[in-house]
């Protein structure tokens, strides 16, 4: 506790003139069509994009095209990979399907929180991640995205933009670092 008081007192002792925090001007954005921009952003971030037609069901699509994928729309998966699961079990996850909540057109980021999958490590430990996002949840920039998050309930959430990557060796981009090696987004 001592350090706490020392630091706070030191700050207060300086007595800086207070500067008013300005209100952020949020440009009013109307319901434009952000889909093309979103798709470009996703591709730039290294994600694969699949646009589903209105009548197509995402789960069926995943079952057909990515057999063996664990979908967290199903209760069984929740049970299996819930609190009882071990890391070595989770480490065997090859492909995972999760529902995204908000998507950002300017950068391809998709918001997921741990209310939509049973263990926080799942979207990272899996080799392939498949995210579903509805066009209705598409916003132009991070400004709108942050206003849509319900913070009262949240304990952990992450924006994901593309598969994990690194360019730490001579600036050459390598897709697939500690997180998934591929990200597929179903719109």
């Amino acid at each position: 506790m001592k350090a706490r008081e020392t630091i706070l007192n030191r700050i207060k002792g300086i007595g800086l003139a207070s500067i008013q925090l300005q209100e952020l001007e949020l440009k009013q954005t109307d319901a434009g069509n952000y889909l093309p921009e979103f798709i470009v952003s996703l591709r730039n971030a290294g994600a694969e994009v699949v646009q589903l037609a209105e009548h197509e069901n995402a789960s069926d699509f995943v079952k057909e095209n990515f057999p063996g994928t664990i979908s967290f729309e199903s209760i069984e998966s929740w049970k299996k990979y819930g609190s009882g699961s071990t890391l070595s079990m989770l480490d065997k996850l090859e492909s995972v399907f999760i529902e995204g909540q908000i998507a950002v057109a300017e950068n391809g980021a998709i918001w997921v929180s741990d209310r939509w999958f049973p263990n926080r490590i799942i979207p990272f430990i899996t080799r392939r991640l498949i995210l579903k996002i509805s066009v209705n949840d598409l916003v132009p920039t991070m400004h709108q995205a942050y206003t849509r998050i319900d913070w009262s309930e949240l304990s952990y959430g992450v924006f994901i933009a593309g598969p994990s990557k690194t360019a730490d060796i001579e600036q050459s981009l390598v897709i697939g670092a500690h997180g998934p090696k591929s990200l597929t987004v179903l719109i």
Partner: peptide, 29 residues
């Protein structure tokens, strides 16, 4: 929270030229 939008829009663009980092993680509890 609204300030986060400002900074997350700028950080990766300034750092590596990406529109945003792959992961922007929020730990609360």
């Amino acid at each position: 929270t609204a300030d986060l939008a400002v900074f997350t829009r700028m950080l990766a663009r300034s750092a590596t030229g990406q529109a945003v980092t792959t992961y922007t993680s929020h730990y609360l509890k």
